[in-house]
Design a protein around this nucleic acid. Structure first.
Length: 364
RNA sequence: GGGGAGAUACCAAAGUGGCCAACUGGGGCAGACUGUAAAUCUGCUGUCGUACGACUUCGGAGGUUCGAAUCCUUCUCUCCCCA
């Protein structure tokens, strides 16, 4: 069931449901922190442990006093643990009881991530929310693989959780630790995982291993299975999701936090999400459409530039094109979750959502 | 006036007797993208057809050959060098 809430960290306080732009390498690609704050008004963004550990490295981030200072971002940061890279860079890694040994995609050098040192790295980064080190299970996978993968993730979770509680923040403000439910698309496994995680009493809980290629219905089913178990008084974070429709469907099922590369990456590739539907701005039909990118518009770019101009920029490979598209998409995503909050507060979420889902999936 | 090089699809450019409806790049058209190795990747791009395929193409005209973008004749045009 859809809920509205509030999360407060050392760096910001914000209402949920919330969408968190992905800023893997200490930047939300193509937008300034200034725009992220003043135009898009994102209260929290992501960083990535794997990428920041490899480059610029923990010595740099440690010396400057954390990622907030390094990138000049004084709102919240959540760091992914590198569990997703265990999945997406799987050709370069090996999983052991100890952790994940892997080769850098940058220079081939060998490294080992353990549930403990991944917490340490996130302490150094200074993330407001630290994610547990997990294996993001690939899809498809059979139940026996999913089961042993889950055992590994749980084993890592126990160690990471212990280490988190026995270590101190480096910069004088508190950090939270979110465990991650896995179990692929098997309800029994998801249940086991959610029950284990509910018992930890963490400040928030995440659902991982979804939107990796499985049918959306499976994803929604898993969310339902898990959310009856995860504590109702703690935020629930669905990792890596998703399309605007995915987000509304998940909010309906009791999810509070989201992140996804879609608004940024797809935006750079010419895909715009609007309240009227999805636009591929590269399509010829926009060539002479001089109407605003999106009316009424949730970002300053929406009313200031036309579809035809944005199409021209993207077609010409101009950097400003990716920038405008990203700003539009992020502002739209943030508007969407803000509006979801408003509708929940008015107790009108369900009819609003039904109407939105219809429009959001249109191809314009 | 003399000498030389060349004309290939939207553009550039390979191909110099059959494996050519024609390499490759660009451009164009469309698609993909879900805790970012992505401002990336994929497909199509003569006509008709879903496809097997059929048909018309390599400056124009004619010829040689079983077979020509490729060889010959001729015409037109372009570029370079010397005067």
């Amino acid at each position: 069931m859809a809920r509205a809430g509030r999360i407060t960290t050392a760096h910001s306080s914000f209402e949920t449901p919330i969408f968190m732009p992905v800023g893997t390498q200490g930047t939300v690609k193509s937008v300034h922190q200034h725009e992220l704050k003043n135009d898009i008004d994102a209260p929290v963004i992501l960083g990535n442990t794997y990428h920041l550990y490899l480059r610029p490295g923990t010595d740099v981030i440690s010396e400057v006093g954390g990622l907030h200072k390094f990138m000049n971002w004084n709102r919240s940061i959540l760091t992914d643990s590198g569990g997703y890279q265990v999945f997406s860079l799987s050709d370069n890694r090996k999983l052991t009881g100890e952790g994940a040994s892997f080769r850098s995609h940058i220079d081939g050098s060998k490294h080992l991530f353990t549930p403990e040192n991944v917490v340490d790295i996130q302490r150094i980064i200074g993330a407001d929310i630290i994610m547990a080190f997990d294996e993001c299970t690939p899809w498809p996978c059979d139940q026996s693989y999913a089961s042993s993968s889950l055992d590994l993730t749980h084993h890592w979770l126990d160690r990471g959780w212990d280490h988190f509680r026995n270590s101190e923040p480096k910069y004088g403000y508190s950090q939270s630790f979110f465990p991650i439910v896995q179990g692929s698309i098997f309800p029994e496994l998801r249940k086991i995982s959610a029950e284990k995680i509910a018992l930890l009493g963490a400040e928030g809980n995440a659902i991982g291993g979804l939107s990796v290629g499985e049918p959306v219905e499976d994803m929604y089913n898993m969310i339902e299975v898990v959310n009856v178990i995860l504590p109702a008084d703690k935020p629930r974070y669905l990792m890596g999701v998703g399309t605007p429709v995915n987000i509304l469907e998940s909010i309906e099922r009791g999810v509070d936090m989201f992140d996804c590369v879609m608004p940024t990456r797809n935006g750079r590739n010419g895909m715009l999400f609007t309240s009227n539907g999805i636009i591929n701005i590269r399509n010829r039909k926009w060539m002479k459409d001089f109407s605003p990118i999106d009316e009424p518009g949730h970002s300053i770019v929406d009313m200031q530039y036309s579809k035809a101009y944005l199409r021209h920029l993207i077609m010409a490979g101009e950097l400003l094109g990716g920038q405008i598209a990203t700003m539009h998409n992020l502002a739209f995503y943030l508007w969407l979750v803000r509006e979801a909050f408003n509708q929940i507060m008015k107790d009108e979420f369900m009819p609003w959502k039904a109407k939105m889902v219809k429009e959001l999936s249109m191809r314009l």
